[in-house]
Design a protein around this nucleic acid. Sequence first.
DNA 1: CTCCATTATACTCATTCAGAGCATAATGGA
DNA 2: TCCATTATGCTCTGAATGAGTATAATGGAG
Lengths: 322, 322
Amino acid sequence: MQQQAATEKNAPDAGKAQDVHVDLIAVVAAVNGCEPCALTIGEADTLPSGPFELGHRSLQSGLRAWVERQTGHPLGYIEQLYTFADRDRVGDEPQQRVISISYLALTRDERAPASPARRWRSWYDYFPWEDHRAGMPPLVSDLIGPALRQWAQSAGDGSLRAERGQRIAVAFGFDDRPWNEELVLQRYELLYEAGLVAESRRGRPEAGVAPMPGRAMVLDHRRILATGIARLRSKIKYRPVVFELMAPAFTLLQLQRTVEALAGRLVHKQNFRRLIEQQELVEETGEMAADTGGRPAKLFRFRHAVLAERQAIGTKLPLTRS
Amino acid sequence: MQQQAATEKNAPDAGKAQDVHVDLIAVVAAVNGCEPCALTIGEADTLPSGPFELGHRSLQSGLRAWVERQTGHPLGYIEQLYTFADRDRVGDEPQQRVISISYLALTRDERAPASPARRWRSWYDYFPWEDHRAGMPPLVSDLIGPALRQWAQSAGDGSLRAERGQRIAVAFGFDDRPWNEELVLQRYELLYEAGLVAESRRGRPEAGVAPMPGRAMVLDHRRILATGIARLRSKIKYRPVVFELMAPAFTLLQLQRTVEALAGRLVHKQNFRRLIEQQELVEETGEMAADTGGRPAKLFRFRHAVLAERQAIGTKLPLTRS
DNA sequence: CTCCATTATACTCATTCAGAGCATAATGGA
DNA sequence: TCCATTATGCTCTGAATGAGTATAATGGAG
């Protein structure tokens, strides 16, 4: 594709334009009950993935093909997450480079039964420190905080110590800082750097502190999952993507619980309703909810029209009308 | 990298896991005076790019190497934009797939002289309809509007007609809708679909309407540039990235002009200052500006500390304190 | 049947923030 | 001296946000 452009350049001295193996990886998310889940395959904790092949019309269709083949689960909404190369590759002089293109996909949990080939697992099995719906988990202040602080102190350089301390405080909301639920990746990477997750100890049997609670995943899949969670937590705030995870009809409380599951924190009920309604994201179906204990609730559906009506909402610049 | 994962899957029927050629492409942005610019190389309108090679330590370092080699311009801030495959590839059954990984890089215009190998060109040479600093350009209502509406009307299906009309109105702010400066890519893609840019007419000499004003670029580089502009216009609203484009010391008006250049629209001066100051993004240097006509202005510098202090700002959920 | 736990839903109130505009302060040049 | 030009401080209004109070329907326990 770039031949034309490439001809205009001086050739690089070092490299050969070696071809590359390309993998497609999916973070498939759904909210089952009140738990946000990711789809995994096989026995190990592995995200659906497979190589990009000649038969694929596009990257996305290649991804869809792989996920459906591996899990039987058709994908709806898809967005690209990130592309990276050779993460945590060890050894010398790789003969072949590998590139991973990751995607975030949103679906409703299908009734298809779990099988060895396909399994939903809660995000918070992998990231127990990310669920703040019942307040800050004791894990954070009792285990993670001390372990990270010890790591920070272990730095020889004073300024490095300070910098680590700062990063820790910002990422985990220590020292009276607010908890920012979007910093999923930063938190994971801090723990990784500090040798506090299993993935960063592979191949080097350190004696240090025990790894923090939370399931590890194959290769760098947990990092990819963290990226997906972060993206979704951010995106629900300015785009109506939650509805990709909802049944066709739902109560406002169900919607709220779904948002809370994703964000890992609680929202104010009345204000949540106000927000949803004044943005006209939903309309009444006319039906009432099959009782969930208490006064019956109206059922709503997503107003698909908003997708066309508004392409974006938020702004943050002092703009002039003119 | 994914071998382990791949072994667990059933093999796909169609594809062979053929290797792929990977290209790195950079949108290098700077604001020169009051014009937002992109760096191009060679005679044609081409973004710096080159293949990912064995000698590269990572994708980013490969990109840096290519851009420095081709333009002599060292890169500072870099972020990944998007990865795509085989855009506008024509012909049958490609024997080799090509993947392009695009990046957005921000720099200050360096004093290095222009040369045939390297040239800054205004964004708005390529996208004249994107500059609304002097109000909506006549081009939009006089040329683009009519041409797009004609395209919409040419649709056989009535619902397709309506859908196109809606997309056009949202993207370009017709029918009393607000202009949304972030929809750069959507606007370009509409024009592309409608056959109103040179890129979508290559290889098919249509008789229809003339293409809209604005320079074309090689291959799909204009689409990539549009992606970069859109990302930057969005990002300046919630992350302090503008400062990557500023000299070490600057007046608030210079900062404002830079933001306006990027956003393609004017901002309210007093409110802009209020925003910058109350967010404590800058601090006084103590110096005053070398006169620019009128009362002398204080010089400011970016408070680098904020990068560590705050990892994100905006939210949009009714959160509880708890 | 009554009381109560539970959820739904409607309002109110205070605070903050964003858009807009007015007013005043320095400067250089006509 | 007056004026054009830019810098900078401050006010005002309306909308959005965080938080809390109050009332409406349910079903189940007693």
